[in-house]
Design a protein around this nucleic acid. Structure first.
Lengths: 202, 202
DNA sequence: CTGGTTACTGACTCGCTGGTCAGTAAGTAT
DNA sequence: ATACTTACTGACCAGCGAGTCAGTAACCAG
């Protein structure tokens, strides 16, 4: 009749807490989220949370890292190993990847970085190295591969992989600010890819 | 010898306070900015600030509006009255306008909207109506004018004025997050405009 | 069963900050 | 001068939320 008030689950707690924190931060942002609220969502006491994370800020950093780490890896592996032609890859896996970003946890991370980034330089550095630099690098390498293979010609785009991502970023921001205003983000990205490929091929 | 401790300047105070608030919000964001700090920068007491603005939130809204109002108007007038050909206008005034945005107060407003927008729906609404809708509308009308004049052909771009602004948005976000990482934002926007014009003309 | 370890709880503290208001003095009318 | 209005000050308050810690009970070894 007396079920224990709690179980000791030292291994799982950190993961559960960061997951709860991610949800809370996604809904209310960092500043407006109370640590106690995170604890409640994770089904633990505030005291326990402070056993695993020294401060709210450390929790924040752990959340960002937990979301970011695995995301880009998949795409980068894909770039390295694909059998597809450059155009097929861009219209296929790359476009699909970009389309799902605005609705994914990555969008939340971007929002948090915009709000809190300026106060966490080391976190920004981490994000740049592990996500942005690697992502842009992958695109650049892919475009250059296309050129070597004779699929693409040389153009300014080789040095501006950002142009592939610009409509994706706009879509992310749009979704964050204008949640109820519709925007055909897929069409936006497709059209941009069309333009870039036209430019790269002719 | 006894200079007055303060002067009564009822007319100028609101403007001075919103200017001070803008600076403070720009540096630290909304949540981290103390009302007292705003008052200090404006050279007034906290009490006076609360005489002109009922709450911190109302002050915030006043700041956004004060920055936004006049900005877009100039561009829109320009669109309506220009004598330039469509291409000349796009490569000239429109491009110049976009290039200066990432370093302007508008970038700060965008950051604030991303952070605080979700908690201020009416402010977002205001911003959409007065800035985004009007800006996008102006670009759309301009593209259509080009088509009527036989300068441009029909294409998907007519319905996606956002593509003109996407690199600008990416530049804004980049500058906010990666303040020390360089990015040739001008080149980015120029190349996008080149691509769009190629698409519109051929 | 028993004693020891430690994951876990939750009530508490304390600094911080949004907001108030009684009082003060700058300007003004007479 | 004098009385009056009101822009302005700054000390104060209330409550909120990050971080603490003394105590509790789940689990385990012997």
């Amino acid at each position: 009749m007396n079920k224990p008030r709690y179980q000791r689950r030292k291994e799982d707690r950190p993961q559960e807490i960061t997951a709860a924190a991610f949800e809370a931060f996604a809904e209310n942002g960092y500043a407006k989220t109370r640590v106690e609220e995170v604890a409640r969502r994770a089904g633990v006491s505030k005291g326990l949370l402070y056993l695993y994370f020294k401060t709210k800020e450390e929790l924040f950093k752990a959340v960002i890292k937990s979301v970011v780490i695995r995301r880009v890896d998949a795409l980068i592996d894909n770039v390295a190993t694909t059998e597809l032609s450059s155009e097929e890859f861009i219209r296929g896996p790359l476009l699909s990847f970009m389309k799902q970003v605005p609705g994914s946890p990555v969008a939340v991370v971007i929002r948090l970085l915009i709000s809190e980034g300026p106060r966490h330089p080391d976190l920004v550095e981490f994000y740049y190295e592990n996500v942005v630099a690697r992502g842009l690098g992958a695109i650049t390498r892919f475009v250059e591969r296309g050129i070597e293979r004779g699929e693409f010609r040389h153009s300014a785009i080789s040095e501006l992989p950002h142009l592939f991502l610009a409509p994706m970023m706009l879509s992310v921001i749009w979704r964050i600010i204008f949640t109820n205003r519709k925007l055909d983000t897929d069409k936006l990205m497709e059209t941009q890819i069309d333009m870039l490929l036209t430019q790269l091929k002719t």
